[in-house]
Design a protein around this nucleic acid. Structure first.
Length: 455
RNA sequence: GUGGUUGUAGUUCAGCUGGUUAGAACGCCUGAUUGUGGUUCAGGAGGUCGUGGGUUCGAACCCCAUCUUCCACCCCA
């Protein structure tokens, strides 16, 4: 038999038990908070029909969708001459399914398909992996986990305000500091294009203006000139790029600047309303920055947009989202407004790992190891094992009568917090010796005393 | 998708202009310590140098291809 070297597809990873425990810690924290805000869980299939996915993420996005080859002898079913078609035409003939690219579009599809069963407004959260055929980099994987919370069926800005609250609560609970929730409105960007004399051309503006941090005002201008913006028009952009002061001050300045530009004023109003709702709920707005140059996000956003980034710039955004007024429209269900955010737990993980933010005790789910002294102690040990499990304590008995040193280092390496020693003395007195592995302290106790300490 | 970069022990990395048996630290195993881990000490095991070709008397080192890693662009969690 030939010896083949095992390997993993590019951009995918195994998660060892200690890593899964850390990821679960993040997921549980997020889930708990999503549920506290009234969101209900939803899961959708790994695969969607390509007709559902295609065209929702722009041309670039379409290319990043992993396609799933049709089953059977798909080649024989091709009707056209292979030499006359290109790869993308071939793709439509041999692949009708693709892997989920995000959780928002499958959610929209679900809402449309189940519109008669759903009670609106519908709040759901969804925690599942998604796949993108992107070129991997740090914090960028081909398979990664997204945690989404969306509300559809209302255009109330209460939802946006709640998103700010949830993000704060999640990140604070995880112990993450130095993050910034950046907000803007797509309407402000649309209005900005009009204001600069290019109505309806905000996408070029968005692409350029979003890079302000990276390439500076000159870079933005240079890029916009290439797409048809003129020097004179661009000068009007300066006061926007140079906004300073508090969120309220910036909003006020912008309001004056844009005068009777209705689109922009509507966007500003949205942000103001969102802020005041959050204030009513005692939300912390110190972590929130209104930035009219934030332009990230997928093409379907129409209202407020969000992005969470680390102030030290150590990683790309850890969360993004916004309001989309017509996502269900493409599936034949118009006039349904939705808003949501997506947290990338792989990036949250990377931030927490580099900053050592994971509590030590989550490294394992096992609470206690019972040592194995050999055949004569086995019966008693197995009984105690069962007694502890019946109390809901996560416990394992070392399966072999290995040297105690080996059993102890097993518990130590796996970060199991307690060890119970059962030898002839313990059996004779009907007791257990409980050792705390972090303090080294140990006591001989009755079963009930042990249970009280461990529960 | 475009351009660049990386790959040597379980892990992180040395390895000179191509020249004998490829090194270190940490980890692992054994013992000091037959009822005590995390510290200490003594000893030991472990590598087809990512993979496949090529150049050469000779390749971890040079060339080509391929996979992988990371970076920039694009885009994004």
């Amino acid at each position: 038999m030939s010896n083949q070297k095992p390997s993993l597809p590019k951009g995918t990873r195994d998660f060892a038990p200690s890593v899964v425990n850390k990821r679960n810690y993040i997921i549980q924290t997020i889930r708990k908070i999503f549920e506290k805000f009234g969101f209900q869980p939803l899961e959708t299939p790994t695969m969607e029909n390509l007709s559902v996915l295609t065209g929702k993420y722009g041309d670039e996005g379409d290319q990043l969708i992993f396609k799933v080859l049709n089953s059977g002898d798909y080649l024989s079913k091709i009707k056209t001459d292979l030499s006359e078609i290109n790869s993308s035409q071939l793709t439509t003939q041999i692949a009708e399914k693709g892997l989920r690219y995000d959780l928002t579009v499958p959610f929209a599809r679900f809402v449309v398909m189940n519109r008669n069963e759903i009670t609106f407004p519908f709040r759901r959260y969804q925690i599942q992996p998604v796949w993108r055929a992107d070129r991997p980099q740090k914090g960028r994987y081909r398979e990664f986990m997204q945690c989404d919370a969306d509300v559809v069926g209302t255009d109330s800005l209460l939802c946006e305000a709640e998103i700010l609250m949830m993000l704060n609560e999640i990140l604070t609970n995880l112990g993450i500091e130095g993050y910034e929730i950046v907000v803007n409105s797509r309407k402000i960007l649309t209005g900005m294009a009009t204001y600069l004399g290019h109505p309806g051309e905000e996408s070029a503006l968005c692409v350029a203006i979003d890079k302000l941090d990276k390439i500076g005002a000159e870079g933005v201008f240079k890029e916009l000139k290439q797409t048809g913006y003129k020097e004179l028009e661009l000068n009007k952009l300066n006061p926007i790029l140079n906004l300073s002061g508090s969120n309220k001050g910036r909003l006020a300045t912008l309001k004056k600047l844009f005068g009777n530009n209705n689109e922009t004023q509507a966007g500003i109003k949205e942000i103001e309303t969102m802020f005041s709702f959050a204030e009513n709920m005692q939300g912390n707005l110190n972590t929130v920055t209104f930035d009219p140059t934030l332009a990230r996000g997928l093409s379907y956003y129409t209202g407020v947009i969000f992005e969470v980034k680390m102030r030290d710039g150590s990683i790309g955004s850890i969360s993004g989202g916004g309001r989309y007024d017509n996502l269900t429209g493409v599936f034949g269900m118009p006039d349904v407004s939705g808003v949501g955010i997506s947290l990338g737990i792989d990036r949250v993980f990377d931030v927490m790992e580099t900053r050592n933010l994971f509590p030590k005790e989550i490294a394992t789910t096992t609470k206690v190891l019972i040592t194995n002294f050999g055949e004569s102690e086995e019966v008693y040990a197995q009984q105690q094992l069962s007694n502890l499990r019946n109390e809901g304590i996560a416990v394992e008995l070392y399966p072999d009568a290995a040297k105690l040193k080996k059993q102890m280092s097993y518990a130590n390496n796996l970060n199991i917090p307690y060890v119970i020693l059962i030898g002839s003395e313990e059996i004779a007195n009907n007791k257990l010796t409980l050792k705390n592995m972090s303090t080294g302290e140990q006591n001989t106790l009755t079963l009930n005393e042990v249970i009280q300490k461990l529960v």
